[in-house]
Design a protein around this nucleic acid. Structure first.
Length: 472
DNA sequence: ACGCCCTTGGG
DNA sequence: CCAAGGGCG
């Protein structure tokens, strides 16, 4: 007679190493039953994040099977499914890694209370973040609203050393029923050429670890400079893995600290970027309205365009604004599911300032398109760009996408990589964009490259006028 | 209370 | 050099 099993409820933590909840489950010595539940929040994911989650599930399922374990898939309300699994397996404990968005917090709070009320030990663990959002406080006991003081408050903290992966997951005497992943059709909303996007995905824990090792080895020393150049593969590129927990922030942090100790100049900048992710979660925890409303309420009256179907907005989404940096970045997004950080700033500045369009339209499009979509980082980034967010860029700071191209893509390597029109010998990536987009867009590589919907210098004036009329 | 400071820029 | 305002200690 073995001990009653422990259910480990997985959500965005598809890794074996440095997984506190899994580690604790294994440490009980009891059989471990890994579970994923397709509930309404999963259903509500954007097309690309949902598709990418499906890939992560498939990958992690195989990973677990390699250890003689399984990933049990269930569909329905989380509490109902966990209760059924408890009844079916005789499990007396349910463990999970905490999430921090308001919907998850509400669900998990209810689940924990209900399970405890029926005598099940429900326990949540850290692991998604290095610093729990409520543990970082200013001297006066409030939360941080500016990044640099936040950085100063956490930069010298001890970060837990990463936990090793369990060598085996004890299987239960019998497995509960599981649904079939393929039947969930997590690619169904991916009505662009998923086959075009797929080669750009870096799937799973092993790929993430390899990527981190290579980044530390080859790129982090010059990261402070090369990370700004979109044609160079100079960033860690780990956001999609961090988003789904295929690697932990702790693991990245410790690798970065070692690189800094070895005197690699860019390592400090990399550590700061990891802390930006923490800062986004800190802000979301303390002000969850950052996801849905202007963080600074005095922006509520600002005359944003909110028409998602406006011609300029459609041109922005389709990478047809006639501004090379903007279009290259939007096409990179569509084809790879990612966008270089500098591109993100430029397309966001162009949408919210040159096109005076509400940041929520950009936020929603990114949520559909990004395989590294993260609720906290996406919301913070958009509000930072628009000016409505905490520690935001000042209103008079309008990125000039033409100047930016000269500065960061002087030889046009990035623009040429992603834009086909007017080229005698377009790059494979530029052509692949036309394989990825829906036919209904009626675009072809043979089209004429469009004239700017709003020119760079004209847009600056548009933005400044609007901000001045707002009554600053 | 008060002074210093504020990721990524433009002209 | 510009520039608003507020966060932070």
């Amino acid at each position: 007679m073995t001990n009653p099993p422990v259910l480990i409820w997985l959500r965005r933590d598809f890794r074996l190493s440095d997984h506190p909840a899994l580690h604790a489950a294994c440490a009980t010595g009891s059989p471990v039953i890994p579970v994923f539940i397709h509930d309404d929040p999963v259903d509500a994911l954007g097309a690309a994040p949902k598709w990418r989650l499906g890939l992560a599930l498939e990958n992690f399922q195989h990973r677990l099977e390699g250890l003689g374990s399984r990933l049990i898939l269930r569909r329905g309300a989380a509490l109902d499914q966990l209760r059924e699994l408890v009844a079916e397996t005789g499990a007396t404990s349910v463990y999970w890694s905490r999430l921090y968005d308001p919907a998850s917090v509400a669900r998990d709070t209810e689940v924990k209370a209900a399970l405890k009320a029926q005598g099940v030990m429900a326990k949540s663990f850290g692991g998604h973040l290095m610093f729990e959002p409520w543990t970082v406080e200013t001297k006066t006991g409030s939360f941080y609203k500016v990044y640099t003081p936040f950085w100063n408050a956490v930069k010298n903290r001890a970060v837990d050393a990463p936990l090793t992966a369990p060598s085996k997951l004890p299987a239960p005497d019998s497995w509960p029923a599981s649904e079939d992943l393929a039947a969930w059709h997590m690619d169904v909303a991916m009505n662009r050429g998923a086959a075009v996007v797929r080669p750009h995905v870096r799937l799973g824990e092993a790929a993430a670890q390899a990527r981190l090792a290579r980044f530390i080895d080859e790129s982090v020393a010059t990261y402070d400079c090369t990370r700004d150049v979109p044609a160079v593969d100079g960033t860690s590129g780990l956001s999609e893995n961090l988003s789904l927990g295929e690697i932990s922030a702790h693991q990245c942090w410790h690798a970065g600290v070692r690189a800094r100790e070895e005197g690699k100049r860019g390592a400090e900048t990399f550590l700061k970027e990891l802390v930006w992710r923490e800062f986004a979660y800190h802000l979301m925890h303390h002000t969850p309205r950052i996801l849905t409303d202007n963080w600074k309420p005095d922006w509520d009256g600002f005359p944003w365009n909110t028409d998602d179907t406006a011609a300029a907005v459609v041109a922005w989404k389709q990478g047809r604004t006639g501004i090379a940096f903007v279009d290259a970045a939007m096409r990179e997004l569509y084809v790879t599911g990612r966008m270089h950080n500098r591109g993100r700033m430029i397309v966001a500045s162009y949408l919210t300032k040159h096109l005076l369009t509400h940041w929520k339209i950009g936020q929603a499009w990114f949520e559909q398109c990004l395989i590294d979509w993260d609720p906290a980082s996406n919301a913070m980034g958009w509000q930072w760009s628009a000016g409505s967010g905490p520690d935001a860029t000042p209103y008079f700071r309008v990125f000039n996408p033409v100047t930016q191209l000269d500065k960061f893509d002087g030889n046009r390597a990035y623009a040429n990589r992603w834009i086909a029109e007017g080229k005698t010998d377009p790059s494979p990536d530029a052509l692949s964009y036309f394989d990825a987009i829906p036919r209904s867009w009626k675009l072809s590589a043979d089209d004429k490259y469009p004239a700017p919907v709003v020119a760079a210098d004209e847009g600056r004036k548009v933005a400044l006028d609007a901000y001045e009329n707002k009554g600053f």
